[in-house]
C-alpha cells in the first residue's frame, strides 16, 4: 500500500505502524464524573465498518508523524490523509 503523507508525499506502508480507529483521538476527561463509563466506551467500543474507515498510522520509519488515513476497508482505497495533530485540533483538543 502507498500512503500519501501530507508532508512527505507518497510513502510505502512498510514505513508505518498501524494503531487503529481514529476515534482514539477523542480521549475522555479522566477527572469527569462519568469517567469510568466514558473510558470503557473509548477503549473497548469501536465500529468495524465494511467501507470507509478513519484510522491512525504512525510514520515510525520516517518523520514520526501520526496520520489519520481514510481508507476503504473493502478495497484499501485511500481517499484522504491528514496529520493527526490537525485533526485533533479541529476536534477541539488543545492543551
Amino acid at each position: 500500500m502507498i500512503i500519501n503523507h501530507p508532508l512527505l508525499g507518497p510513502r510505502d506502508a512498510q514505513e508505518f505502524t498501524y494503531l487503529g480507529d481514529a476515534t482514539l483521538i477523542d480521549r475522555p476527561d479522566g477527572m469527569a464524573d462519568a469517567a469510568p463509563e466514558a473510558f470503557h466506551d473509548y477503549l473497548h467500543l469501536r465500529d468495524n465498518p465494511a467501507g470507509t474507515h478513519r484510522e491512525l498510522w504512525y510514520h515510525e520509519g520516517g518523520d514520526r508523524s501520526w496520520l489519520v488515513v481514510t481508507r476503504d476497508t473493502r478495497t484499501h482505497e485511500i481517499t484522504r490523509v491528514d496529520l493527526a495533530r490537525d485533526v485533533a485540533l479541529q476536534r477541539g483538543r488543545g492543551a
Binding site: L24, L56, A88, L89, R93
Partner: peptide, 15 residues
C-alpha cells in the same frame, strides 16, 4: 516513544 508521540500529537496537540 511511539506512545508519547501519540499523546503529544493526538491527545494534547496544544501542549
Amino acid at each position: 516513544y511511539r506512545h508519547l508521540e501519540f499523546a503529544r500529537q493526538c491527545l494534547w496537540p496544544g501542549l
